[in-house]
Computed example of a mutant assay.
Amino acid sequence: MRAEIAGSTEATGEERAIVCHLRRATEFGLDDLTFVLRHFLSHLNRGSVWCILKDAGLNRWPVKEKIRPVRGEGTFRDYYDLGYVHIDVKHLQKLQTADGEARKRFLYVAIDRCSRFVHLAVKAAFPFKTTHILTDRGSCFTADTFEKTCQDQGVDRRRTRAYSPQTNGMVERFDGRVATEVLPINVAHHADLEALLRGFNHAYNQRRQRVLNGLAPAAKVAERLLQQPGLRNRRHKPVKDAEIMNDVDRIMIYANDVSQPDS
């Protein structure tokens, strides 16, 4: 049976095996490899050879085959306990400020790798100490002031590889959730948007997750802090549920009224 490769070009399982074996044996680049293969597999063009190599994890040079664990069975390294935080910045739409001016703002999204605990704010304030920070190479994270702040706080600051957003995929995916679940809601002011984000943040941290074996991020954090009290951030000030949800209820009532005006 043939498997479709690169549109109309096809390759059998045996042909795929030949391409991969020749790549490993010769370590030829894509162009040289294609030139050799065309002598006895004339229907395979450069694009189809690249697709075969990509599917086998052999498309990069030098060849480095990776053995990945089965999904759900992988483990984090020892230092991936509470405190390894992925950070990103998301652009928000323009809304009115208190003085009536339309101004754009930026949302800092921070998510802990171990507990999936999230904080949405201008500054991240986790209930535990931050030990590592992973960011992309955006200008807001390459400024000298950001570097100095990390050094002053004793935080191990790390960057993703260039043009590799998947390295920071955990926070990138959460950015997508904010974009689809929060930002489409009609709000009038920045203050209401920030209150709505706080409510979404709080609800997410209380939601059970399969990846945490049925625990919510907040419960995971509480469990780890009970085991290791030294990780606790003494400056963290928890917010009462009622204060958050009362604001969210008010904003949602306004949003429903705007979205469904009286006929």
Rank of each mutant, 00 (worst) to 15 (best):
E194C: 01
R158A: 05
D262Y: 07
Y163T: 00
R234I: 12
L197N: 06
D144A: 09
L41R: 04
V182G: 06
E10N: 07
T97N: 11
S42W: 08
R105N: 14
Q166S: 08
R116Y: 11
E223W: 11
R23N: 03
L44S: 02
L134Y: 01
Y84H: 10
H202L: 07
G13C: 04
H132V: 05
K104Y: 14
V239R: 13
P184N: 14
A6I: 07
Q227F: 08
L212K: 02
Q153G: 08
N168C: 10
D152R: 13
D31M: 13
D31W: 13
K148V: 15
R234M: 10
L44Y: 06
F35I: 05
P217D: 04
G169T: 11
I111P: 00
I87F: 02
D247P: 01
H190K: 06
M245P: 06
A124W: 03
R137M: 13
D192Y: 02
K220D: 00
G214M: 04
A218G: 01
L212M: 11
V239G: 00
V258A: 15
L41I: 07
L197R: 03
H39T: 15
P165V: 08
R71E: 09
R137S: 13
D175A: 00
E65V: 12
I111Y: 03
V211H: 06
A124V: 09
I185S: 05
R232S: 06
R158W: 01
V85K: 04
L197Y: 05
A143C: 08
R161F: 06
R68L: 11
V118I: 12
S259E: 15
G47D: 05
G230R: 03
E73G: 07
A125M: 14
F40A: 12
I133Q: 00
R137F: 07
K220L: 08
H43P: 05
A11D: 03
R235G: 10
A191T: 03
D78P: 02
A242V: 13
L193W: 03
L107S: 12
Q206S: 11
V221L: 06
D152S: 12
F106W: 15
G74Q: 12
A195K: 00
P62H: 10
R113D: 15
S139V: 11
V118A: 04
K90H: 14
I244V: 08
N213V: 06
P69N: 13
D192N: 03
V63N: 00
